Amino acid sequence: MMDDTQLPRRHGKLREEAADWFAIMRNTEEADIRRKEFEAWLACGALHRAAYSRVAETYSVGKHLKQDDAGGGDNISEAVPARLPATRSSEIRKPLLIASAVALLSLCAHWVLGVGLTNLAGVAQPPLDASLASTRVPLRLATSSGEIRSFRLNDGSLVALDTDSLVFVRYDASRRDLQLVRGRGRFTVAHENRPFTVHAGRRTVVARGTIFDVAISARNLVRVHLMRGAVDVKDQSQSTIRLSPGQQLLLSATPRSSPQFEKAAMEDARWPDGLRDYTDIRLADLFEEANRYAKTPLLAATPEVSDIRVSGKFRITDTHRLAGNLADLLALAVITSPASISLARDCPTNSGKNCRSPS
């Protein structure tokens, strides 16, 4: 295996991956499940190990400073990787920063066998021979806050990720395994003999040529919604629940409580397109959903406006457009500022160009 000191990648990206793995490995239950993947990631080379050591030591130093109330907090970000003398770390770091980041990023993406990733330009990376997958690190698919993005895998499957979501993908000659770490994904599965499995916490969703959503909430709940085909939802005891199209299952990430069937929200059918179809929803609730994607939050100027109810199909990922459409529909004023976009019954006195009057 080529050591990653020969082809350094962009340090910000590597730090982000290291931080993700550090968070996963500090969770005892997740660590048990993901240990082999973590060890494979470390095996990429010295840069991976150094990045993880730096994250771990930064955490340790920060914790020590907090406990001892000692000085020097400004130096936490420069913590030296474990097992490297301080004098050598600066010597090693400099040449590593000079080499090509793009080359290693492409190399690590190709290391997931059988997986091709479509980038923003629509150019698919050609996969390597799938027979080598078991020795390679998983492919990392992620979205930032406010972003919805779709990825095409080279078997033809599609993965759409909602805002602030993270999935690891590992394909080999006999399996297609994905791990949802956070957020929500829609999985459109290509038909073939290899099983397609999505892990979320200690729950496992096995697809059988289908379309389904899997989400992990902030309360560590797993929600599985089946749109087409069939899926089996399992836990570590191998007890299985089979879903039919239209069914939605809510369960804890760990097998501590009984799964519950619930009514699927119809407005979520087109979330990968940024569209929601609402029936009689309060504006305050609509704004809360839209602000998950907003750079500039959408607000109601008064409680009266918050309680207005509306029905219709809206693109909630475009805050300015949504505010204008709602204002036109409900005869409201739009008040803009650097910090927010507000809807009100009328423009405030002396608001000037910052307010568009009701139409």
Rank of each mutant, 00 (worst) to 15 (best):
A200S: 13
L117M: 12
L226E: 03
L161A: 07
P272A: 05
Q6K: 10
H11F: 14
S351T: 08
G185I: 06
S145G: 10
V80N: 04
H64P: 01
G183C: 08
P338Q: 05
A323D: 02
A18N: 03
T118C: 07
G229L: 07
V214R: 04
G62R: 08
M227L: 15
A133P: 00
R149G: 03
F151H: 09
G274H: 02
R282V: 06
A253P: 01
I33D: 11
T296N: 10
N325M: 12
T188G: 11
A103H: 08
F261H: 12
P358A: 03
R345I: 12
I211K: 09
S252I: 04
E39L: 07
A43D: 05
R140P: 00
A301W: 06
G146E: 03
A99T: 14
P81Y: 02
S165R: 04
S217H: 02
D307Q: 14
Y171V: 01
R49L: 00
S77R: 14
L161I: 06
A339G: 03
R88H: 10
F38W: 10
R309H: 11
I98K: 14
G352H: 01
P297K: 07
G12C: 03
S311G: 09
A323L: 04
Y59I: 05
E267I: 02
R34H: 13
G312K: 08
E289T: 11
